[in-house]
Structure formats: C-alpha cells, structure tokens
C-alpha cells in the first residue's frame, strides 16, 4: 500500500509544478553552463492550471514573458512528469520566445540532474544532488500543505513561524519554510537566529541518504544524525507532509 488515497488532481499539479519551478531556479545557481546557454535578458515563465495552480520561473530576475496554460491539472502533471498533456502557450509580455526556449532547456536539464545517481565517491555530485533533493522536498512540502486539504487538516496544528532546514557544517545548503496565515512558503537559505525551529542533518551524506529513501528519517533522528530543535510541533507537523510528498512524487 503506497498510498492511502488517490491524490487530488490539483494537489498533484501544484506539487509537480512548484517542485519543477524551484528545481530550475536552484539548478540555475549551480550550473553556469546552463545559464550561459539561455537567451540573454530578463523574462519569466508561468506554469498555470485551473483551480489556481500557478508557479513562476524567473530568468535573470524577469517577471513576464510566457504562460503555459494547461487545460487541466491532470494535463499539467502529465506534461511535467515527462508525458503528454494539452496546454496553450501565450505571451505575457516581452520575451515570450526566450522564456519558452529557456524553460525547454532547463526542464531537460532538471530531468537529467534528477535522474543522475552519483557514485559514492563523487562528492561534488552528491552535494549537487542533495541541494536539488532538499529544494524539491521543501518546496513540495509547502505545496502539499497549501493544496491538500486532507493533509492540511492533519497538519493544522503547525503554528505560525519559520523552520530552518540545514546541514551542519554546510550552511549554504539550507532552506526555510515559513508558515503564515495558514499558508506555507519556501525560500532558499536559512537564518538560524530567526528560526522558531531547526531541522538539521549531521552531514551531506545523511541528508542525501534520507532524501533518497536509503535510510528512514526516524532512524536517523534516533541516532542523532537528524536533529530537531526549538518549537518541535512545527517540525513534527512536517512529517505527514513529507510522507504525502513522497507518495505524490
């Protein structure tokens, strides 16, 4: 039994598009070759589906360019999973063609990066993959919370505030989840002094193995390689969201 129930189409689409958008933004900070290959200028692409599912990918700080308007949430999920789904591209300002080209290149690069399994000795490869996986997990958790009513009910007790997620000794691999007005958002980076709670992995290897499912987070929690500090109900509320994210992805 991998899933207790079929996901809402809206949830699956929101998670998939949010994760793809965040992964592209992260990859752009890691891959200078990819950056150089993109059309010059500032522009953006919006992934849009019915039921208010939207994710924006900004290139060089741009805010307008193209919209991929999917006919249904199912079409969005299928397309962003590598299948075929109906969508209509239309311009939302200058840079329409650039935005489409850039998205095509970046989506392919994300797909390649996520399917790549680094060798055990490939430390830079593991580090890069860990960054991407952490981005996907944190953004995915936020989208599950915001769009899955069932899980949101379970996670209703998560108090407002911020959770910093980081790897000890590697402060630049980090993310922050913010809960405000019953909405959860993700931003890269973490400010420990301002966080209400901290979820910390002892090292990159632990984070990588947890995020790839090689070890159970709970076991690593017990061994102290995954640490929780601060306002624990905030972090405990993340676990059902992470479970659901795993089921959806």
């Amino acid at each position: 039994m991998s899933s207790i129930r079929k996901p809402y189409a809206r949830t699956a689409a929101a998670v998939r598009s949010g994760v793809v958008a965040s992964l592209i933004q992260t990859l752009l900070t890691l891959d200078s070759d990819l950056n150089k290959s993109l059309p010059a200028g500032q522009y953006a692409l919006k992934l849009k589906a019915p039921e208010s599912v939207e994710s924006v990918i900004s290139f060089n700080g741009g805010t307008r360019g193209a919209v991929l308007n999917f006919m249904s949430c199912e079409a969005m999920t299928d397309t962003l999973s590598g299948g075929k789904g109906a969508f209509i591209p239309y311009p939302s300002g200058g840079g329409f063609t650039k935005a489409l080209k850039a998205f095509q290149s970046c989506a392919a690069a994300v797909s390649t990066a996520m399917s790549h399994v680094p060798e055990k000795e490939d430390k830079p490869g593991i580090e890069k993959k860990t960054r991407l996986l952490l981005t996907a997990a944190l953004r995915g958790v936020c989208e599950v919370y915001n769009h899955d009513h069932w899980v949101k009910m379970k996670a209703a007790a998560i108090p407002a505030g911020t959770i910093a997620v980081r790897i000890a000794g590697t402060p630049d691999i980090a993310g922050t989840i913010r809960v405000k007005d019953k909405t959860m958002s993700y931003t890269p980076g973490a400010d420990l002094s301002a966080a209400n709670a901290v979820l910390e992995f002892a090292d990159i290897d632990t984070c990588y193995r947890v995020l790839t499912g090689q070890v159970a987070a709970m076991a690593e929690l017990g061994s102290g390689k995954v640490m929780l500090r601060g306002r624990l109900p905030m972090i405990q509320g993340l676990f059902p969201l992470l479970d659901r994210f795993g089921e959806l992805m």
Partner: peptide
Amino acid sequence: SPGFTVPGQ
C-alpha cells in the same frame, strides 16, 4: 518518542 525529547542527547 525520541522526537519528543532531545534526539541524540
């Protein structure tokens, strides 16, 4: 649960 204490310590 360990998660209710100070895990690892």
